[in-house]
Amino acid sequence: MTNPVNQLTLDWMAEYEKKCQRHLIDVDGQQVMWRQFGQGEPLLLIHGGHGSWLHWARNIDALSKKYTLYIADLAGYGDSSAPDFDDFESMVQVTAASIRSLLGPTTPFNLAGFSFGGLVSANVAAQGLAVKRLALLGPGGHGGPRRERGKLVNWKRALTDEELLQAMRFNLWAHMIYADEQIDPFAIGIHTYSCINTRFRSRGISGRGLLGPALDVYPGPTLIVWGEHDITCTPDYLMMHMIEGQPNRRGVILPDVGHWVNFEDAERVDPILVDWFAV
């Protein structure tokens, strides 16, 4: 196969690489990449499993007008180095250490995470870092029921560019995006780039129920946003079991969207995040 990432996505990446400042943070030999955009209070963004900083592509422009964004490639993803570990606890420790090195040990910051990155973010916040407010978008690790739309196909078995394209499109439909029209070449390009550059296995970790205990430790305000059709959870169930009776938590269910809410419905998610972190 040739380079399987489409030119639209490659061009976008080249444009935004010119706009950002890159920080490659060394944590005991593990290299963690953070990209910096904008000005203002620091807001850190963490991507999902089989993801990269590109999971936040549709949010950078709006959020960087209000905040200094630092967007991670977690260890074992994107431009960060291959991990020398395979456990979640090490992922949290390496991510937390990279943040301390990036910002300093006492600098207050806001933190948002998507999917597996939401689980990482909650556990980083529970480490006692100076997290002012936390936002989790379709976070993993909730321990509640899931809903299957279709079984993911093994894209690594694709022999041609067209087979790979079809696998990526199907998996986006099955797992990430509800509306067919949102599964566009940009979404497919992001998913292709991110999957190819994933070297850490997160799927089993997200099923271990590690989100609730972390949120019970973190004392700050927490926002959780789900798409109505998120197949990784049952949003109404989680509103009842994770939000109700928790005065420091707020839950939002966005209609007509799936799991990747910050991409599929950036027009609604961006103002929600700006307002949440503006307090």
Rank of each mutant, 00 (worst) to 15 (best):
Y67R: 11
H259Y: 04
F200G: 09
F116W: 14
I205Y: 00
E264D: 09
G104W: 10
Y16S: 05
T68A: 06
E163V: 00
T9H: 01
R268D: 10
V153G: 01
C20I: 01
D87C: 08
G117N: 07
A174K: 04
L44D: 08
P108L: 10
L159M: 12
G48H: 06
M91F: 06
G138E: 05
D180V: 12
T234F: 03
G51C: 09
E181K: 11
R157C: 08
P145R: 11
A125L: 01
C20R: 07
T95E: 11
T107Q: 14
I188S: 05
A126V: 00
V124M: 03
N6F: 00
L74F: 03
R146T: 15
D236E: 14
T9F: 09
V153R: 05
S202N: 12
S52W: 00
F88N: 04
I46P: 05
Q182Y: 08
S121L: 06
G76S: 01
L69N: 03
N248D: 12
V124C: 03
I25L: 06
L44C: 11
L44W: 10
R249V: 03
G143P: 02
K66G: 07
N154D: 15
Y218V: 06
K65Y: 01
P185H: 03
N3G: 00
R149V: 08
W226P: 02
A278D: 15
H47S: 10
S101G: 12
E267N: 14
S98T: 06
Q31A: 15
F200N: 05
G212P: 00
W56G: 01
R250E: 15
M239V: 10
Q30K: 11
M168T: 15
N6H: 04
A266K: 08
A214L: 02
E17N: 14
A214N: 01
E148V: 08
Q182L: 11
L210P: 00
D265Q: 14
G38E: 05
W155C: 01
V274R: 12
